[in-house]
Design a protein around this nucleic acid. Structure first.
Lengths: 197, 197
DNA sequence: TGTACATCAGTGAACGCGCGTTCACTGATGTAC
DNA sequence: TGTACATCAGTGAACGCGCGTTCACTGATGTAC
């Protein structure tokens, strides 16, 4: 029957997810509090548990959005461009860096320990990650046409991890604090050197 | 005057640091609890605060040890070997990977968010990191003799971050769960390609 | 060396706080007739 | 359409727990004479 009640539920879910996203974006995942959320959307604390099993599920809803935005950003960066495979990798990495830079806290939430320590990563998480890897894998197999799938997979992970590592430590102001354009240079240098046979 | 009292204090510091290290190694930083520590070393909870300002300071003491062990491991790996600069980088990375693999939780504690979010990273931390970078910088300047210091510094950070990223995601079982020898291959592939002009 | 006093390490119960989650209750929405 | 009843969303005070840190107290160690 959906209607009214059902709609209210969905609106609440939506509002809570928006509120949670806003908190994550501005203050990080750790700043998510039931009472704040309730205050923000104008519902009671208990109501949250009517539409989400617990706060972690709510955080995961936000992470899902973030992941989709990230995937879209990286995919869009390539769109329509006639770049060489090498250039494609650099473009995607640039998009990744930019996304991480513009959405640092939301991006960090994706890799937050609580999620990755407590329990199994949900299916859609891995699927989303797989989609990202597939995007990277294409130019790689163009660059190394005689490699088999295993080699390509390995290199895909390696490149993703490398870029991720550079972005991660680069954006960690307290430890290194490298300006973004320098991070970009590092990535380009690493990728160019790796992919130039 | 030092003597007796002073010695007791130092013993307690030592014992507490050992206990904390043991907890971190087996259960991770987040598992550090004042009551557990007191139980382990056979002192009262309050006594901890007599020799450490707070638990964070104690964790930092353990992190200091870990950092020194890590530095020594990486330095030792090179010791006496007549490897080419390229090989040296791969050897150091291998040592880094092995250390991270054998001491995953202690190694993770080094990069734990609480430390890096709450406040400034202490001086010795940066000094220790600088020493590690210096170790990496040497073979790099041998490989790229015509580069200036800035370029070398940049590449040093880039390589360290890359390797760190590969190790990080590789060891994150819940996300990727790559066998260690595969991680090693990734690192070697990346480094070889980067450093082969 | 012995005694009196002062210091400060050591104690652990209690404070205080944060916060996720529950639960008995209420009132609006939906259903049956 | 109107009435009676059932359901379940919504409420928010209270529960419960974990845990870092404190603090009034005690007793051992060190000092002065």
């Amino acid at each position: 029957m959906a209607s009214k009640t059902e709609k209210r539920r969905e609106d609440l879910r939506e509002n809570l997810t928006n509120a949670a996203e806003q908190i994550i974006v501005t203050h990080g995942v750790r700043a998510i509090k039931a009472r704040d959320l309730a205050g923000m959307v104008g519902c009671s604390v208990g109501a949250i548990y009517n539409v989400f099993h617990d706060l972690n599920e709510l955080v995961m809803a936000v992470n899902g959005r973030t992941f989709r935005r990230l995937g879209a950003t990286v995919a869009d960066a390539l769109d329509g461009s006639e770049a060489t495979p090498q250039e494609q990798l650099i473009i995607m990495s640039g998009a990744y860096l930019e996304f991480a830079h513009e959405n640092t806290l939301a991006w960090r939430a994706l890799f937050d320990l609580k999620m990755s320590t407590d329990m199994a990563v949900p299916q859609w998480y891995l699927r989303e990650l797989g989609a990202l890897f597939a995007l990277i894998g294409k130019p790689i197999s163009a660059i190394f046409p005689d490699w088999d799938q295993d080699q390509i997979d390995l290199m895909t992970r390696a490149l993703f991890s490398s870029v991720h590592g550079i972005v991660l430590l680069g954006l960690e102001k307290r430890i290194s604090g490298v300006p973004v354009d320098q991070i970009e240079k590092m990535i380009a240098a690493v990728l160019t050197n790796i992919t130039t046979q």
